[in-house]
């Protein structure tokens, strides 16, 4: 069976810093993968490489058997890779509706289909009532929902979430988790980057641990917790 996503010894350097050092990674259809590591370990860089925001210096990215290493970000979205950025990132002067619908309109040439998808995405993220609001009037939780709706509206097969719990209260995190779980049951795969391990470890099937650009661990969440090296880089966190 073809893997959904394969990263094959991906390397990325910024000047002298090696942000990713021969990182290999596989994600199957419908999988929930956690991506963790201390600050500056290269998690966001990996997400950027997969979503096409930056191109790797070496290595290949293969999505559903197709080499996408040099593909533009918007083409990857059309293929089925969506992402949200670390921190809240929305179009500040566009209402929620357009924040979401523009992505749909870019992927679906049929305007009516795009509108239907937008409605669907706004419904599952419970944003219909705020569709006319500007981001400036929304709470962090609602902003996160806008980002999520935008990621979902293009009909992805893989969603990359970069610190989706940051800035949310425990009950809000639970709601995000609930939505993720529901979507996952329908076959959607996620890569979730998080520092809030308490929530993450319960959610994912598998974790990959990065440290200084290298993959130092891959396996079940409970094994990660008991792994010595992981404990060492995460000293005091676990």
């Amino acid at each position: 069976m073809v893997k959904l996503l394969v990263c094959d010894s991906v390397t990325k350097k910024f000047g002298g810093i090696v942000a990713l050092d021969k990182v290999s990674l596989e994600v199957s259809k419908g999988e929930l993968l956690g991506l963790i590591g201390p600050n500056g370990s290269g998690k966001t860089t990996l997400v950027n490489v997969i979503s096409g925001v930056i191109t790797p210096d070496e290595g290949r990215i293969v999505f559903e058997g197709k080499d996408i290493t040099r593909l533009k970000p918007h083409r990857r979205v059309a293929l089925g890779i969506s992402r949200i950025f670390q921190g809240m990132r929305v179009y500040p002067y566009l209402p929620v509706y357009y924040n979401v619908s523009l992505s749909a309109r870019s992927v679906y040439k049929d305007a009516r289909l795009a509108r239907a998808k937008t409605t669907w995405a706004l419904t599952i993220t419970r944003l219909l009532a705020e569709a006319g609001e500007l981001p400036i009037n929304l709470t962090p939780y609602k902003l996160r929902m806008v980002e999520l709706a935008r990621a979902l509206v293009t009909g992805p097969k893989l969603v990359l979430l970069d610190e989706p719990f940051a800035g949310l209260s425990p009950s809000e995190i639970d709601e995000v988790i609930e939505i993720v779980k529901k979507l996952n049951e329908n076959g959607l795969a996620f890569i979730i980057v998080e520092h809030k391990l308490r929530y993450l470890m319960k959610l994912v099937n598998r974790v990959v641990v990065l440290n200084e650009g290298k993959k130092i661990f891959e396996g079940k969440p409970d094994e990660a917790v008991s792994n010595e090296e992981v404990a060492r880089v995460y000293l005091g966190v676990l």
């Binding site: 979503s51 918007h74 992402r83 929305v90 500040p92 002067y93 566009l94 293009t154």
Partner: peptide, 14 residues
């Protein structure tokens, strides 16, 4: 307008 407000975001979201 999306290009004007956050070009990278626009590109990365389709």
């Amino acid at each position: 307008r999306s290009v004007g407000q956050d070009e990278l975001l626009a590109e990365a979201s389709g």
